[in-house]
Design a protein around this nucleic acid. Structure first.
Lengths: 340, 340
DNA sequence: TATTAACACGAAAACGGTTTCGTAATTCTC
DNA sequence: GAGAATTACGAAACCGTTTTCGTGTTAATA
């Protein structure tokens, strides 16, 4: 087993000092052509590669970024992650992922694990539990240590840092308006228990559109479900309410609504038009294909990584630092579950 | 900005040596109760946490594992990753993910980036391009350096290392048999261009079942598509072949087959029974719900992480090391797209 | 020829820990 | 009360780099 070779080995072998080897490999002109040639040839021959850990220790830069997200199986987070990873890699950074699994404790533990030198900065979406508890001390902790932090999607006003969010309210407004404009009057909203900042924003947009369309908001037409995959409430809801349009805050609810509605004899989009959030595979491969809101996770991830790396590399001036909130524009992808 | 505190700071402040601080914090009984109390209290007060990088450099262990996968949006890889992350975290390891995007070059670059001290071991599924090229030098490189490697799902015989695979052939056999046993005679196979070891194995199982069922293999009934989302070939295929059963090597093909078949007037499962691979959300939320093969990605990931960490922590005896190949048993999840 | 400049290299500190070993001071043993 | 054992701590090496600074040798300059 050919162990990794170090500067020391090369130095010993070539009977020069470690500093000479180091400089020669950096092509410093402190070192003569001859010596450089000799050392470089030797290094290449033995496939010398500097040890990242040593370099990290030396310049207090790991070139790693930490990503803490609630879930990695969820399509949206996955695409964001892909965006992060792609951009980060292009800039020479590696990405360490920790999944909080919507748990406050795991979020805290994960951050602590990483905050002790393993990473140069964080990109995070808050766990559901964290948003519920409204306890952000672990975030304060790291920002006070001077570790750059970028929040995306699930953010909070209580932490001063860069953020990347979707124009949730606006796009929900736009989507609802499009339902109204196609003649829908009894428009349901299927959402989650409102712990998530995003669900709230979407409901705001929904209500605003109703108001603009002169439709009175009706709590009866709002179904609040606990979790992503807890869809049993949908069937009774659809049975006991006459609706002709529907906005869901995710794909799964929307798809399930369509399937229940079809089973109940409605045709889509004529009897009921449906719009979902998240442009994942479910939307593309459902029958009918779901009109949905593309959140452009890749873009969000890329933006988050960009903001973070900028913060990391430009030693910002300590005190009166400026924080930006970038808004990613969602788009309505029209497919077969809505009219025109 | 409260910068991170080091042993040196504590030592200076308390007027003791660095070694004393280090030992005191480890509760060494080389140090008197009094001194320990004083140092520990101080450390706690200033929230001292040892620097991971320094520790890594010292004991040549990073407690990081590198995961290189072709795709992170794909459901199967996502679940494997979740399994890895969960287990690794439990054992105190962090996970660095790199996405090869099915590209040989990116796979090589990613491995090189990580192999210089950033990680203690690799978990990988080979990129499509790598399997095509059959060039595994980058894998040889790392194993020769003594870096433990575990391959999963997309593996190769040419590299001696631990592996975790699915019983692809067996389960494909079983699935096909179940179609045959429910009276199906003209069973199609929808697969990918056979660069992937797994597609090959599945076809083997399919053929074996046909043989056992005394059905002659018919190349006409095999559709080989280039990529996961390249599904245009399906409609002509279904139009020009009379089939009554179908096995697909992934979810997407299967779902799309169902939707095309339904559009062509077939009823599922009576006219055509369909079985897919991958028990993702598509299968659960399609209409009808897809009978599919659960690959238990979480389990594969967990097993891969377990094997890897064992290798990392038990300094294996260099030369005649033993490598194991763990087989994860897939299961057939019966839903609505097959009979009974 | 004496002085200076340029060249080519090495010693050593530093990054932040861990660990081995040496040693004063105290306590124990006979 | 002398020698041995124990206690409590510090010095220093080490992990693998980078980088500053010092210095001996040679070449250029006056």
């Amino acid at each position: 087993m050919r162990r990794k070779i170090t500067l020391k080995h090369i130095a010993r072998e070539l009977e020069v000092s470690i500093s000479t080897v180091s400089k020669a490999l950096k092509n410093s002109n402190e070192i003569s052509r001859d010596t450089k040639d000799k050392i470089q040839a030797f290094a290449k021959l033995y496939n010398y590669k500097p040890n990242n850990i040593a370099i990290s220790l030396k310049n207090k830069r790991t070139k790693n970024i930490g990503v803490v997200i609630p879930d990695i199986v969820h399509h949206f987070f996955t695409t964001v992650f892909r965006g992060i990873e792609k951009y980060a890699n292009k800039r020479g950074y590696n990405v360490i992922v920790c999944v909080s699994d919507e748990s406050f404790d795991r979020e805290v533990i994960n951050m602590e694990m990483l905050a002790n030198g393993s990473i140069d900065g964080f990109i995070m979406a808050l766990a559901g539990e964290t948003q519920l508890k409204k306890d952000y001390n672990h975030l304060k902790e790291v920002t006070e240590q001077g570790i750059p932090l970028v929040l995306f999607d699930r953010v909070t006003d209580e932490i001063r840092c860069d953020k990347v969010v979707l124009n949730d309210a606006e796009i929900a407004f736009e989507a609802t308006m499009s339902l109204i404009n196609s003649g829908r009057q009894r428009i349901a909203l299927i959402t989650t228990d409102n712990f998530f900042s995003v669900s709230n924003s979407r409901e705001v947009g929904y209500r605003k559109a109703l108001k603009k369309g002169n439709i009175e908001f009706n709590e009866q037409l709002v179904l609040r479900l606990p979790y992503d995959e807890d869809i049993d409430g949908i069937e009774p809801f659809l049975k006991s309410n006459k609706i002709d349009g529907l906005l869901s805050v995710n794909e799964i609810f929307a798809i399930h609504c369509m399937s229940v509605a079809q089973r109940l004899g409605y045709t889509i989009p004529n009897d009921i038009s449906v719009i979902g959030f998240t442009d994942g595979i479910l939307s593309k491969y459902s029958t009918p294909k779901l009109t949905t809101i593309a959140q452009h996770g890749d873009k969000m991830g890329e933006m988050a990584a960009k903001l973070l790396i900028e913060k990391i590399e430009n030693d910002f001036d300590e005190e009166n630092e400026v924080f930006t909130t970038e808004i990613i524009k969602a788009t309505l992808v029209k497919r077969e579950s809505t009219i025109n």
